[in-house]
């Protein structure tokens, strides 16, 4: 339990002359929510793009379950069980919840889509996250609220047996009640044993749901703290570069 699922050490990435990541160390634990915070341009997006395989790191070691892995394509990451839930959601509004949850990996039997099996598993995945706000799994995504869409996107990663779920600002566009729903969902996701890495700008959300807080400042990891051992002001200090360990 105390072994990190993912361990980054000395990860570097630069775009031409600009060093975006200057040797990052990060540990993400199973069953825990690790918040990744930092101001705009700190390198948060670049860090997760490397993990998702979209934009490989230039240097550094990535250990996944203790084994060194090389993430060069999204497919490789996906095969390891790394799923990214993007801010702009990546759902098809014209399809229903089940169809979206199985998009790209539809199950078939006798060469035709096995709708009943997919419907059952989708409902079970939502149920395992105690989702109660969704009326029907056959609702079109276009009829869902922002929070419900976020829920579907997160449940999709559960369905894919993800070991690490990376959430890119999951509450950015949501109202108060929906933010609460999604944060609860994130908590339950971690409690089910999944490692969660959550990018967020909202420190209230971070303190509510995260176990660990990792702070990036201009491409360096200035601190990785336990939530209970720190406070708002300290974290703001690290984010703005006024405070150093």
């Amino acid at each position: 339990m105390n072994n990190p699922l993912v361990q980054l050490s000395g990860v570097k990435k630069s775009f031409g002359p600009v060093d975006v990541l200057k040797g990052i160390d990060l540990k993400v634990y199973p069953g825990k929510v690790t918040a990744l915070v930092g101001d705009n341009g700190a390198g948060k997006s670049t860090l997760i793009k490397g993990l998702s395989g979209v934009q490989p790191y230039d240097e550094g070691v990535v250990l996944f379950e203790g084994q060194e892995v090389h993430l060069h394509t999204a497919r490789q990451s996906s095969a390891l069980g790394i799923e990214v839930v993007y801010q702009d959601l990546a759902l098809c509004e014209n399809l229903d919840i089940v169809q979206n949850m199985f998009l790209g990996r539809e199950e078939t039997s006798q060469l035709t889509l096995d709708e009943s099996s997919m419907e059952y598993q989708a409902a079970k995945a939502l149920q395992s996250l105690s989702v109660k706000t969704v009326k029907s799994v056959r609702q079109k995504v276009s009829s869902l609220s922002g929070g419900q869409r976020q829920t579907v996107a997160i449940a999709r990663s559960v369905l894919r047996d993800a070991k690490l779920v990376i959430l890119d600002e999951p509450t950015a566009a949501l109202g108060v009640a929906q933010t609460e729903q999604v944060l609860n969902l994130v908590r339950r996701l971690a409690d089910s044993g999944v490692a969660v890495l959550m990018i967020s700008h909202n420190l209230v959300d971070v303190f509510q749901v995260a176990d660990d807080i990792a702070v990036l400042y201009l491409g360096t990891m200035v601190a990785q703290l336990k939530t209970e051992e720190t406070n708002h002001n300290d974290v703001i200090g690290y984010i703005t570069g006024l405070k150093k360990l």
Partner: peptide, 9 residues
Amino acid sequence: RHLFAVGGN
């Protein structure tokens, strides 16, 4: 299904 998905998003 993929045809509908490509048309939707």
